[in-house]
C-alpha cells in the first residue's frame, strides 16, 4: 500500500464557527507530494480514516491545507481534527485525485455548498492560474462561509455568494441555462445539495459526462440484507446484516487491498464469478456496474442470497 506521509500541524484557524482549517507540513520539512486540483488526502485519525479535500496549491507544496466542518454526530474524524493542537503529528496517505478539472472544457462552472467549497477552491486557484474561463456559485449558511476572502481575492466578480436557497436556486438555473458548448460543471456539497444541482443541470440538458461530483461525508448506508459469499477455494462466508463483505473477508483472514472503506477510492474491487451484486459505491461507472462482474466489497452487497467471488 501507499507510503504514509508524516505531517505535523503548523497552524490552526478557527475563525469560522464550526470549521477548522489545518495547515500541515512534512515532519522532516521536505516538499510534500504534488497533487491535482480537486484531490483529497486521507488522514489517519482515531476510528475510521477520513478523506479531506486539499485547498492549497498542488505544485511542489510545502504545506497541505484542509478545512474540516465539525460533525458532532459523525464517525469521529471531524471531532478528532477539532481536538488537534499546533505541533501534533498527523499521518496522511498520499493525495488522491478523483475530481480533476477537464482541460478541454471551454468554460468551468463551479458550484459549492457549505464546506464543499474545499475542493472547489483548488479548482478555482488552478483555473485562475491557467486563465481558464471560470465562474463560481457558493452557497453557505450566513456566518458559516469558509474561505470567503480567499475566494473573493482569486475570483473577483467571477464568484457569487448566496446565503438563501431561493436566490441560489434561481441563479443556478439561470447560470446553467446560459453556457457555451463544451462547458463543464463541478459541484461539491452535501448530498441533497448536489442532487439539486444535478437535477437542475439535467433538466436543462446537461449530459452526465459534463457534470462532475465530489462526494464527501458519504451518508451512512443501511445495514443491508444478509447473504453468503462463496470464495474461489469453495469456502462459504456468512455476511450478516450490518457487516460489510470486506469485513467478512478480513474476518476470514483474507488480505484485501482497501483504503477509504466507503466506496470511493476504488481499492477493494473484487471480481464476481456468479450472482448479482447490489452496487452501493460511488467508484464504478454506470457501465462497470451494469456488467455485474465486479463490486466494491466495502459497501456493496448481493442482490440475492449468494455471491461467488474470485478471491
Amino acid at each position: 500500500m501507499s507510503d504514509r506521509i508524516r505531517l505535523v500541524v503548523t497552524a490552526i484557524d478557527d475563525d469560522v464557527p464550526g470549521i477548522r482549517t489545518l495547515t500541515l507540513a512534512a515532519a522532516d520539512g521536505r516538499v510534500l507530494p504534488d497533487f491535482t486540483p480537486g484531490s483529497h488526502v486521507v488522514l489517519e485519525c482515531d476510528g475510521p480514516a477520513n478523506a479531506y479535500s486539499l485547498t492549497g496549491d498542488g505544485t511542489m507544496p510545502t504545506t497541505y491545507s484542509v478545512s474540516v466542518l465539525e460533525v458532532p454526530a459523525g464517525a469521529g474524524g471531524s471531532r478528532w481534527v477539532h481536538g488537534l493542537a499546533v505541533g501534533d503529528p498527523v499521518i496522511a496517505l498520499p493525495p488522491r485525485s478523483m475530481f480533476a478539472p477537464i482541460l478541454q472544457g471551454s468554460r468551468h462552472v463551479l458550484v459549492a455548498g457549505g464546506i464543499g467549497i474545499t475542493p472547489i477552491l483548488s479548482h478555482l486557484r488552478s483555473a485562475v492560474r491557467w486563465g481558464r474561463e471560470v465562474e463560481l456559485l457558493y452557497a453557505y449558511r450566513d456566518g458559516r462561509g469558509a474561505h470567503l476572502d480567499e475566494v473573493k481575492e482569486l475570483a473577483g466578480d467571477r464568484a457569487r455568494f448566496f446565503t438563501d436557497r431561493t436566490s441560489f436556486a434561481e441563479s443556478l438555473a439561470a447560470t446553467l441555462a446560459d453556457q457555451p458548448i463544451g462547458a463543464h460543471l463541478y459541484t461539491c456539497g452535501p448530498a441533497g445539495f448536489m442532487d439539486a444541482v444535478v437535477e437542475t443541470a439535467t433538466a436543462l440538458g446537461w449530459p452526465p459526462s459534463r457534470i462532475h461530483l465530489e462526494h464527501f461525508g458519504v451518508e451512512a448506508l443501511d445495514p443491508g440484507e444478509p447473504f453468503q459469499a462463496v470464495l474461489a477455494d469453495g469456502r462459504v462466508l456468512d455476511v450478516p446484516s450490518g457487516v460489510s463483505l470486506l469485513e467478512a473477508l478480513e474476518g476470514a483472514g483474507l488480505d484485501v487491498p482497501q483504503l477509504c472503506r466507503q466506496g470511493v477510492c476504488g481499492e477493494c474491487r473484487v471480481t464476481v464469478r456468479s450472482g448479482v451484486p447490489l452496487h452501493r459505491d460511488l467508484f464504478l461507472s454506470a457501465e462497470a456496474k451494469a456488467a455485474n462482474d465486479s463490486l466494491m466489497c466495502c459497501v456493496s452487497r448481493a442482490e440475492g442470497d449468494r455471491l461467488e467471488i474470485d478471491l
Binding site: D34, F35, T36, P37, G58, T59, S97, A100, P101, L103, S126
Partner: peptide
C-alpha cells in the same frame, strides 16, 4: 506518470 497540476 500522472502530471499533478494538469491531471494529464
Amino acid at each position: 506518470l500522472r502530471l499533478p497540476e494538469s491531471g494529464g
